[in-house]
Each structure stands twice: as structure tokens, then as C-alpha cells.
Write a protein that binds this DNA or RNA. Structure first.
Length: 436
DNA sequence: AGTGCCTGCCC
DNA sequence: ATTCTGC
DNA sequence: GCAGAATGGGCAGGCACT
């Protein structure tokens, strides 16, 4: 069968997914080889440093717990990346972190870069080896990092070849390619904004506090316009954080990543801890305008959403043509409770096939006549090849889409004609001024 | 050669 | 990515 | 408080089909 063939092929290339979480594997290994899941933290640390379940299993089987306890960073093996919690106000951040350092949060791709002499490897957030996609980043790493051996992290961002100004995320994604790498490199060079140093010349820095890691980063990097430390500022009170956040937004970044500078502010490999907190404009609902979208279609849910809708197709109103044009699907933000009510709410609007006043390139599984309105929050609007809102108005063959859409609440008080209009989203898009 | 659909990976 | 939920 | 499981837009690339 085709599915069977896929399983076989994946076994051969080592890409078979089993549906067992890595943490469950660690539990099992601990139980199997040490007789108790209590020893899992030892395995976890080794795993976090090497991202290699096979290595953890083999070492444990061959050398026992003792040898695993001595697990170390290996340059060339990706360290599992640390991620951040989210908070919506500077007061909450200060309350949680106290003294901290705030860094610009840029909209690019996270790089973990390993250097051993002249040999460089770049890893993505999910431990993919992406070295070949970014030869320019490799070159800068060789030339600008003075340590013989180093592991650093930063954000790769596409920049304009002439002006050096930062390009949006969508543009950077054109660099994630297998062919035509050199041409794209000329057209869309990357800049790397560094923010972490995990290892330098034999020294594991992951268990050292932030201030020391940042200092070490500064020591080993010789900065250039395209390879430099990300803008950061020491913060001790909420008002300073607010000011710096304003600056970050003015500079067209996503916001701030705020990091604890306490003695215990280690790099928690593989963890999402409160040592790092994300602060984005969209978390403060006052700072980003939500949109009111008309539900024109739906898609069936899977897994725990089976038997219900998994996502709704949202549209804005075009009064000129008296038409509803799609702008995004919405599949998150629903509680189990309000999700359960959706079918009933929409039943009376169900419509055989696409409603004549709906303009959609996307084929919904269930269609509705315009009736129900929902409030949706997003981070920003992007040009879209698949949504029809403002289609052709900003660019040929492109509409607009909401990035990171989430359901906020029903707008029973609004009729479909009172939903957000095409002209409004066009204005919102233009107000984003994507030039850094 | 061109189109459309699906997947995997970024966010 | 965001969000909710169960442990 | 954390991990897991739902879900989003959009890019390149692979493959089937025209």
C-alpha cells in the first residue's frame, strides 16, 4: 500500500515518526536500564545537550547511568533550544523576573551556529541542519567569531542587498531552499543578530548566568553590519521596559524578549521557563486592532476535535460588490465549551456549496451564508496567495491574510454588513510600514 | 513544460 | 506561531 | 507550571497529472 511504502521509506532514511514523544522515550529508557523513572533527569540533561535519543540510549546501555551523568556538549550536535513564556504587560514581566535584560525580538529564523575551526554548522529550532541554505551566515561565522570552538545563537533575517534594511519573514523563507542558493544569497543576503553564547573554547556556558553568556558573546564576536549582537538593554523597572518596548515597535520588530539576569539565569536547554519572557504588541489587546470576521465556511476537526469543526473560514465585507472575501481560517482560541456550541450556531446558515456572495479560492468542507460574526486577533496582515480579501489591490495575484489568527469572542451584536471591511484591512496593512 | 496538490518546516 | 486542557 | 494537542499563514520542493 502507499502508506506502507511510506513507512518503509522512512525507516530507511531514518525519518520514521512513531507518535511517541521524546519525553516518553526517556522515561522508557530510564525504566528499562536503571529500573526507575526517577533517573529521568539524568537522561533528560544528556538529551537536552545532544538532541540525540540514540546517543542517550546507547550510552546508557553501554556505560550505565554513571557515564550518562558525564554527558557533555558536543560541538556539531545541536543543543535543544530554550524557549520563552509570554506575558502581556511590563508590570507582570518585572514582577516575574525582577532585574532583567530586554532584547529586540526580530522576525526571522532562529539559528544555532556551531563552529569548530573552519567548520561551521547551522541548526534550526527543530534541530534541522540548515547549513547549506545559508552560506553567507557560515562565512560570517568563520570570519567574525574569534573563538576556535563556539556555539552561538541568533536570529537570521533577510536584508535588502543595497540598503541593508530588514525584510519580512516571508522574504527570508525564500532562502530556505535546495536549489538556486547562490543566486538567492546575492539577492537576499541574511544578517545574523546574535543573542546567546552556549559554548566557547571548551567551556560549557549553558549553566552560567545570562550576564556571563552575553559578555562572552561580546568577547568572541567581532561585529559587522550583518553579523552583530542583537540590541539589548538592562532593565530594572516597568517604565524602562515600556520605553524600550516603544522603541522596539518603532523599529518594526515584533517586540521584546526579556531575560532574567539573576544568578540562576542559566540557558535551560529544551525548556520553556520563566527565565525568558516574550512581550509582543498583540498580547496587549489594546495595542493591536482585532477584526470582526464573517464565518463563511468550516473544516472538520481531527483528534480531540473529531465530530466538531476544527476551524472556521473568516471573511471581511466588500460593500462595493456586496461580497465577503476570505482573510484567514481560525482554529485556535476556542474553549471546549464555546467550540461545542459552534455547530448549533451555524446550522441555520448552512448553505449547499459556496454562497454566491462569498469570494473564496479555498474549498471549505461546509459552507455558510453570511450571518455569524466573530472577533479575531492577529499579529499582522500579510500578502496572501490563497485569501481573497483586497485581492489584486496591493499586489497582483495577492490578497491579504491575518498572521497568527485566534478567536476572541462572538459578535452577536454585529450583522455581517457591520463586519470589518476590505478598505479597513487595506489601511491596516499600509499602516504596518514594513520598512526597518 | 506547466499546473495543482500535498508535505515538511519556518514562524 | 497561539491557545486551551489535563496532569 | 509544564507538556501535549488542537489549530493558523506561507514558503520550497516532490509528485501526479495534463
Amino acid at each position: 500500500s502507499p502508506l506502507g511504502a511510506r513507512y518503509l521509506a522512512r525507516m530507511v532514511v531514518g525519518a520514521l515518526r512513531l507518535g511517541i514523544g521524546d519525553m516518553t522515550m526517556l522515561d522508557s529508557l530510564a525504566l528499562a536500564y536503571t529500573g526507575s523513572a526517577k533517573n529521568r533527569p539524568v537522561l533528560e540533561r544528556a538529551y537536552n545537550l545532544t538532541s540525540d535519543l540514540g546517543y542517550v540510549g546507547r550510552t546508557l546501555a553501554d556505560g550505565g547511568l554513571k557515564r550518562l551523568e558525564n554527558a557533555e556538549i558536543i560541538v556539531g550536535k545541536p543543543i535543544r533550544m530554550m524557549s520563552a513564556q509570554r506575558l502581556s504587560t511590563s508590570e507582570e514581566v518585572i514582577e516575574k523576573l525582577g532585574e532583567c535584560s530586554a532584547e529586540y525580538k526580530l522576525d526571522g529564523e532562529r539559528f544555532q551556529i556551531h563552529k569548530k575551526g573552519e567548520h561551521v554548522e547551522i541548526f534550526s529550532r527543530r534541530m534541522e541542519n540548515i547549513t547549506r541554505m545559508y552560506p553567507d551566515a557560515v562565512q560570517m561565522m568563520i570570519e567574525q567569531v574569534k573563538a576556535d570552538e563556539a556555539i552561538v545563537e541568533g536570529e537570521g533575517v533577510a536584508v535588502d542587498a543595497e540598503t541593508g534594511e530588514m525584510k519580512p519573514f516571508q522574504t527570508l523563507m525564500q532562502r530556505r531552499r535546495k536549489y538556486g542558493i547562490e543566486e538567492m544569497m546575492e539577492k537576499l543576503p541574511v544578517a545574523v543578530y546574535l543573542f546567546e553564547c552556549l559554548y566557547a573554547d571548551g567551556e560549557d556556558l549553558t549553566l552560567r548566568p545570562y550576564t556571563e553568556r552575553r559578555r562572552r558573546l561580546g568577547e568572541i564576536v567581532e561585529e559587522t553590519e550583518r553579523f552583530k549582537l542583537v540590541r539589548a538593554k538592562p532593565i530594572s523597572e516597568a517604565s524602562q521596559l515600556d520605553d524600550f518596548f516603544e522603541e522596539a515597535i518603532t523599529d518594526c520588530t515584533e517586540g521584546l524578549l526579556v531575560k532574567s539576569v539573576a544568578d540562576d539565569s542559566i540557558y535551560r536547554a529544551g525548556g520553556r521557563s520563566w527565565l525568558w519572557v516574550k512581550l509582543k504588541a498583540s498580547y496587549q489587546s489594546k495595542m493591536v486592532d482585532p477584526v470582526d470576521l464573517v464565518i463563511v465556511g468550516a473544516f472538520y476537526g481531527r483528534g480531540r476535535r473529531a465530530g466538531n469543526y476544527g476551524a472556521l473560514l473568516g471573511a471581511v465585507y466588500d460593500p462595493e460588490e456586496d461580497t465577503y472575501r476570505t482573510i484567514c481560517k481560525v482554529g485556535t482560541g476556542f474553549t471546549d465549551e464555546n467550540l461545542a456550541k459552534i455547530p448549533e450556531m451555524l446550522r441555520e446558515h448552512q448553505h449547499e456549496g459556496k454562497h454566491p456572495r462569498v469570494d473564496s479560492l479555498m474549498e471549505a468542507e461546509v459552507w455558510f451564508s453570511p450571518g455569524v460574526v466573530m472577533e479575531v486577533l492577529g499579529d499582522e496582515l500579510t500578502l496572501s496567495p490563497i485569501h481573497t480579501a483586497a485581492y489584486g489591490k496591493l499586489r497582483k495575484d495577492s490578497g491579504l491574510a491575518v498572521r497568527f489568527p485566534r478567536f476572541i469572542r462572538w459578535r452577536d451584536d454585529k450583522s455581517p454588513e457591520e463586519a470589518t471591511q476590505v478598505t479597513e484591512v487595506v489601511d491596516m496593512y499600509n499602516a504596518q510600514t514594513k520598512t526597518v
